[in-house]
């Protein structure tokens, strides 16, 4: 899917990946794929049938960025596994490679003006193009500031970068920082809380975190029965009921 020109330092990673795949070993990211993936039903998107976190859209730099991003935003602790173990990176990759990422339902006629914040999204970019340009600009900022790309800096530095993006203090040049950040944040939350058929929220860990019961919701008798009481729930996704 990725047809972006590769930079020199990508070649090493790509060669490694090619060899790894040729050798029948899961690629770097996929070695971490949790057993939960095997529970994903075949009814979902075809890519889920593979026991790997194969990417359809993100290039190697972007994969590294997104993996570092989701694992920083959603670290492993007693509440949930980390972001890549939830498949949030997979969700983001598919969302960007799919209809939404390609600008489905987005009015894409010019002329293009910056406008007022209240006029909403005005960039001549699809979400996928915005993501790609935003990652490149953020990595450029990281290299200027830390001499390393986002995936190579330490946790404190990553925290500073995310704060800089979310508050708009990091200047991404031609790209409005808040627009990029809003899109990033939205996709991470979607990857954590959307139905698992979209590749994220593996094991329904996002739903379990809050006690959301998922797709099963026949609560006619429950409204009174569980009023002000905890609802015992083992959440069900669309695939569990298909």
């Amino acid at each position: 899917m990725s047809d972006q020109p590769m930079k020199d330092h990508d070649v090493g990673r790509r060669d490694f990946l090619r060899k790894a795949v040729a050798g029948g070993v899961a690629a770097t990211t996929t070695a971490l794929a949790p057993p939960a993936l095997a529970q994903q039903p075949a009814a979902a998107a075809p890519a889920q049938e593979a026991p790997t976190a194969a990417y359809e859209f993100l290039n190697l730099d972007e994969q590294a960025f997104v993996e570092a991003l989701v694992n920083h935003m959603i670290p492993a602790d007693g509440l949930t596994p980390k972001g890549t173990d939830l498949g949030i990176n997979v969700y983001i990759d598919r969302a960007l490679g799919g209809a939404w990422g390609k600008g489905d339902r987005l009015y894409m006629q010019g002329p293009w003006k910056i406008g007022q914040p209240g006029q909403g999204y005005q960039l001549p970019l699809t979400p996928a193009q915005l993501y790609r340009a935003g990652i490149e600009a953020t990595n450029a900022y990281c290299v200027r500031t830390y001499k390393k790309t986002f995936d190579k800096i330490d946790a404190t530095q990553r925290e500073d970068v995310l704060i800089g993006l979310s508050t708009g203090k990091i200047d991404l040049g031609a790209l409005p920082t808040r627009t990029f950040w809003t899109t990033v944040y939205q996709t991470v939350m979607e990857g954590m809380f959307a139905d698992p058929i979209y590749g994220g929220n593996r094991g329904k860990a996002g739903w379990k975190l809050i006690g959301f019961p998922g797709a099963l919701a026949v609560n006619r008798e429950n409204v009174e029965k569980y009023r002000d009481k905890p609802f015992p729930t083992d959440p069900l996704g669309i695939a569990d009921m298909s």
Binding site: E190, F193, A194, D195, G214, A215, L216, I238, M241, S242
Partner: peptide, 8 residues
Amino acid sequence: VPNVRDEL
């Protein structure tokens, strides 16, 4: 159900 129960 279940397909309509899809927030995304």
